[in-house]
Design a protein around this nucleic acid. Structure first.
Lengths: 412, 412
DNA sequence: GGTATTTGTTCAGCGATTGAATTATTTGCC
DNA sequence: GGCAAATAATTCAATCGCTGAACAAATACC
C-alpha cells in the first residue's frame, strides 16, 4: 500500500527520537550482518552523531548489544557491530488448539528461547480450565525466560476461531467455544507478562493469522506479501501485506475455507454450499482417501495420508489431487484479487505439499490472468505445528522493534 | 492494518514540520465545518502556538484560506475558520476508455472544477493518437484551471487494463492496447502539469482502481475500507483498505472478473473456466436478456436493460437475477477473505443496482460466515461514468493533502 | 462601561539533529 | 619501530521547531 495517509498523532519534539529509534533498530533487525554505527548512518541518512545518540539509548534499554563486527579489509579503526540483544524484552506466544496447548518465548532476534507443548484433548475442557492450564505453562515460561535474562513484554494467544477486537472468541467450532471472553477469564490470574507502555498485555487472534506471522520468522522484516493457508479441519488463511498482517475491518479476514469452489455443491456447516472446506478440509481429504478418520487425531491422519501417497496408493493420490484442485481454485481467486506472488501451505497442508502444490499451480496457471507475466510461488511452510504460537510471540517482539520508545520509557 | 511498520526514512529536523503540516491540513480536510486554529490545537494535541505557525505556512502556500467561522454561542473573540483553498493546487484526471475520453480537474476540497467528455470510438485509434487527443483536452483544462486560479500539480490517467508500475499498459483488451508505454508516448508533448516535488507528473493505473478512489470523493479522508466493482465488458474491482488503495505486489490486484464462480463452466478468454465475467459481464447479461448487443454501445445497452427490467420484462429480470447471483458468489468470496463491510457497485452496474443488489445480498447472507454478526452494505456508486477520471484527479490532490511539504517547498 | 471569555500571537526555553572538529584505533608503508 | 592514511565514534556550538506562559485582540454578558 502506498504510504499516503496522514500520521496518526501530533509530532512533538520527542517524536523525532521515537521515529529514529524505530528506524535504527529496524535497520539493525533487517541487516544480515551486524552493522556499525557508521553503516547505520549511511543506510538511514542520519548523521553519525545522531546514530550514536540513538544507539546509546538502545544499548541502555537492552534492545541491542555490541558484537564482534563483520571483519573488514583495509585500514581504519575497527567498527563495533550492533545486534539485537539476547537478554532484553521477549514475546510470549500462546496457543489453544483441539489437541494441544503451546507456550513459547521468542526474543528480539526471533529466536525461540522457550517452548512447551502440552498434548491433551481440549474439547471436553471448559474454556476457563483450558486457560488456567495455559496460565500455569506461561508461568513456567516466564521463570525460564527470567533465568535467561529475558523480560516478557507482552503476550499473544492464538485460537482456532473468530476473535473480535476485544479478545472475545466469538466462535471456535472445533474447540466448541462460543463467546468466550478470554481477557475476562484471565483477569483473575496473575499477569502473564510485565507491563510495557505501547504493548498490549494480551492480544487474542485467529491461529491462521498468527501462523502467517510465524512465516515471517527469521526473515528480515520488510515488504513481504503472501498468503498463508492453514489447512486443519477448517481452513484459514492469514494475509500478510507489505510485511503486516491484514486483519480486515473487524479482524475476521482470511476465511478462505468458505470460498465457494462449487457454488451448487455440498452444503457446508456455515450455511453456504460448495465451500472449499467441503473439498479440501482435512475431513474431506481423509474421507475421500478412504481412511476412517473418526478415531484419528488430525496430525496422525495427515501423516498416514502422506505415507499412503508416498507409497502410491491411488485413492490417496486421487483425494490429494482433487483437494489440491479445489484449493487451487480458491487460491486463484485470491491471487486474482490481491495480486500476491507467494502462497504458503501451512498447518496440516505442509506435509501434504508435495501432492497439493502441483494441482494448485495448475489452477493458478489456468485461471490467473497475470500469471503469464509474473509467476506465483507455492511452497510449504517452514515452521511446523507451532507456527501459530511462534507467530504470536513474534507479533509481540515485532511491535517492540517497530516502536521501541514504549519499552525504553518503561526501562527508564 | 495496524500501523506497525517502521517509518520509511530518517526523521530529520524538518520532518517534524512536515508531519505537522500534514496533520493539520488533514484535519482541515476532514472537518465538516471550518475549524479555528484553537479547534485544530485541541484536535491534534499541538499547542496553539504551533498550530498558528503551521497554519501560516499553509496560508502562504495557498493550501488553505480563511473563511467565515462557524457561528458560536457565548463570549470570546470570534474564531477565524480555515478551509481548503479554492485557488491553490489541483489535480488533473484523465481517462481513456472504449467510447470516450475524459479530462477533469479537481481542487483540494474535492470539487470538480473542470470537466470535458469527448465521445468517440477509440478502438480504431492508435494509442499515440488517442493520447495526443487527450493532451489537447488537457491543455484546455489547464488553461481553464489557470483562469480559476488553480495550478495543476500532477496528473493521473485511468485506463481499462493492466498497468505496471512504470506506466506501461500491458494489456487493455477492450481498447485493443498491448504493451503501450504511455509515459514515453507523452514525452514528446508539452507537460500536462506544473512540476511539484513529491508529486509524480503522471500516474497511470487501472480505471477500476481510480473509480474506487473516486468513491472516496467528497468523503472525509479516513479509514474507509470497501470494494468497488466496475461492471463493464470486463469486471474490475478497486480495493480500498483504510482509506488507501490496495494495488497488490505488482499493481494488478482487483481482477474480480476472473474469480471462478462455476469452476467447470464456460471457457473464458483468460484461459480459465467459469470466470465471473462470463456470467455477470455486460455482454453476458445483455445476451441472457435476449438483447442484441453487437450494435449497441455499452452504456446504451445498460440503459435499455434497465428500462426492460423496470417494465417487468421477465427475460431481463431473470438475466439480472442470474448475474447478481454470480456476482454475489464472487463478492461473498471477497468478503470472506478480506472482511470488508461495504461493497459499491459502480460503472455499468450502478444503474442496474436495484436488480443486482438483492441477489448479491442473498449470496452474502448465505455464504459469509460472519454476516450474522456484522452486516455488509451493498450500494450503487455515487458517481457516474466519470468516476475513474474524478478518482484519478482526486488521487493527485489526496497526495498533496497527505504530504503538503512538497508543494510548499515548490511554492517558496 | 466593565468583566469574563475565547482566540490568536509573541517570546524565552528546551530537546533533537546537524556539521565540523576532535579523539580513537587500526592498517600499510618506509 | 615510527609515521601517515583511513575509518570509527564522540564532542560541541549552531540551528530548527515545539512548548508553555504571558500578552494582545475581540466579542458577549451584566
Amino acid at each position: 500500500m502506498s504510504p499516503t495517509h496522514a500520521p496518526a498523532g501530533a509530532a512533538r519534539q520527542g517524536s523525532l527520537r521515537e521515529l529514529n529509534l524505530a528506524l535504527v533498530l529496524g535497520r539493525i533487525a533487517a541487516a544480515d550482518r551486524p552493522p556499525s554505527r557508521a553503516d547505520l548512518a549511511t543506510a538511514t541518512g542520519l548523521t553519525r552523531a545522531t546514530v550514536s545518540a540513538v544507539v546509546e539509548d538502545l544499548l541502555a534499554g537492552q534492545l541491542v548489544s555490541e558484537a564482534d563486527p563483520a571483519p573488514r579489509a583495509g585500514a581504519g579503526r575497527p567498527a563495533r557491530g550492533l545486534v539485537l540483544a539476547d537478554r532484553g524484552p521477549a514475546g510470549l506466544g500462546l496457543e489453544v488448539n483441539v489437541d494441544y496447548l503451546t507456550v513459547c518465548v521468542v526474543d528480539l532476534a526471533g529466536q525461540v528461547r522457550h517452548r512447551t507443548v502440552h498434548r491433551a484433548d481440549l474439547r471436553p475442557v471448559a474454556p476457563a480450565d483450558a486457560l488456567a492450564r495455559l496460565v500455569d505453562l506461561a508461568g513456567e515460561a516466564r521463570a525460564d525466560a527470567a533465568r535467561q535474562g529475558l523480560t516478557l513484554a507482552g503476550a499473544a494467544l492464538a485460537v482456532p476461531g473468530l476473535v473480535d477486537d476485544a479478545g472475545l472468541v466469538r466462535l471456535a467450532p472445533n474447540l466448541g467455544w462460543r463467546d468466550v471472553p478470554v481477557p475476562e477469564l484471565l483477569s483473575g490470574h496473575p499477569s502473564l507478562t510485565d507491563e510495557v507502555p505501547g504493548v498490549p498485555a494480551l492480544v487474542v487472534d485467529n491461529e491462521a493469522n498468527f501462523a502467517a506471522l510465524g512465516e515471517l520468522h527469521s526473515r528480515p522484516p520488510g515488504l513481504a506479501s503472501f498468503l498463508h493457508i492453514s489447512g486443519e479441519v477448517g481452513i484459514g488463511a492469514g494475509i500478510v501485506l507489505d510485511g503486516a498482517l491484514f486483519r480486515g475491518v473487524r479482524g475476521w479476514s482470511g476465511e478462505i475455507g468458505h470460498l465457494p469452489v462449487h457454488p451448487q455443491g455440498r452444503p457446508c456447516r456455515c450455511g453456504g454450499r460448495g465451500c472449499l472446506e467441503q473439498y479440501a478440509g482435512q475431513e474431506a481429504i481423509v474421507a475421500a482417501a478412504g481412511l476412517l478418520r473418526a478415531e484419528l487425531p488430525a496430525d496422525i491422519a495427515t501423516a498416514r495420508l502422506a505415507e499412503l501417497a508416498e507409497a502410491g496408493d491411488p485413492d490417496a493420490l486421487r483425494a490429494l489431487h482433487d483437494a489440491g484442485t479445489a484449493l487451487g481454485v480458491a487460491v486463484a481467486s485470491v491471487v486474482n484479487l490481491l495480486d500476491l506472488d507467494t502462497v504458503v501451505l501451512g498447518g496440516g497442508y505442509a506435509p501434504l505439499a508435495p501432492w497439493l502444490c502441483p494441482p494448485v499451480l495448475a489452477e493458478i496457471a489456468a485461471r490467473v490472468l497475470t500469471a503469464a507475466w509474473s509467476p506465483v510461488t507455492v511452497r510449504p511452510s517452514t515452521l511446523g505445528p507451532e507456527a501459530a504460537a511462534v507467530g504470536a510471540a513474534e507479533s509481540v517482539v515485532r511491535r517492540i522493534v517497530a516502536r521501541p520508545a514504549g519499552w525504553l520509557s518503561r526501562s527508564g
